[in-house]
């Protein structure tokens, strides 16, 4: 009898363990799903390129396009920031607009000072985000961002990273993505739809 109870108990514990593990994995893989509204990422306390403190509240009030990158990025980051500002000019012509956020995956080199020079080069309404290494990495992880150093030489390194642009509505809810290879027309439609949401 005792044996059966122990086995049953073990079975239940294993079951609970398996369930929580699958829940945990699901939460890691997929953003929190609150009804039809998904919130990506996690709350954060970081620093904007202006030196001011910034939190997830920055995603409230105006739709956002959020991109992860780094200033030593040869191509994906400048291309994406250029494209987004160009697309925004077109969207803004229809009186609606969105904010652009550039969150570093290279906090060691992307200090506030580095971002302060880099960000305005691409135009107004772009906010660079950096901070303590661990806090920045935690945010990237919460967004499900992949990043990995490669091409490490004595002069530096490159970082392969997720090149997706995340679109949030004016309440900070996830509304879609723009892939790196998506055509300009599709990206424009997505941004027009994003800024039309009320």
């Amino acid at each position: 009898m005792k044996k059966i109870i122990i086995i049953a108990a073990l079975f239940i514990v294993t079951l609970i363990g398996a369930y929580s593990l699958s829940e945990y994995i699901a939460r890691q893989l997929y953003p929190q799903n609150t009804g039809a509204r998904m919130q990506l990422g996690s709350p954060f306390n970081l620093t904007a390129h202006t030196g001011e403190a910034i939190t997830e509240q920055a995603f409230q009030g105006t739709p956002s396009a959020v991109f992860f990158g780094f200033t030593h990025c040869p191509e994906v980051c400048p291309t994406t920031l250029n494209d987004l500002t160009n697309l925004r000019d077109e969207v803004t012509a229809g009186k609606k607009t969105f904010n652009i956020f550039f969150i570093t995956v290279d906090p060691a080199r992307d200090t506030v000072a580095a971002l302060r020079d880099y960000i305005p080069y691409f135009g107004d309404g772009i906010t660079g985000i950096t901070g303590e290494e661990e806090a920045v990495y935690a945010l990237a992880r919460a967004w499900g961002i992949f990043w990995e150093k490669n091409n490490i030489t004595e002069s530096g390194y490159n970082i392969d990273h997720t090149a997706t642009v995340f679109l949030l509505d004016d309440k900070g809810y996830f509304k879609g993505t723009i892939d790196y290879h998506e055509s300009r027309d599709i990206a424009l439609k997505k941004l027009e739809r994003l800024t039309a949401i009320r």
């Binding site: 994906v76 992949f146 490669n150 091409n151 392969d160 990273h161 997720t162 090149a163 892939d179 790196y180």
Partner: peptide
């Protein structure tokens, strides 16, 4: 070269 792999842009010599 650069290759887009599952949303990640990977660069290699």
């Amino acid at each position: 070269q650069m290759i887009l792999e599952a949303g990640v842009m990977k660069m290699s010599p």
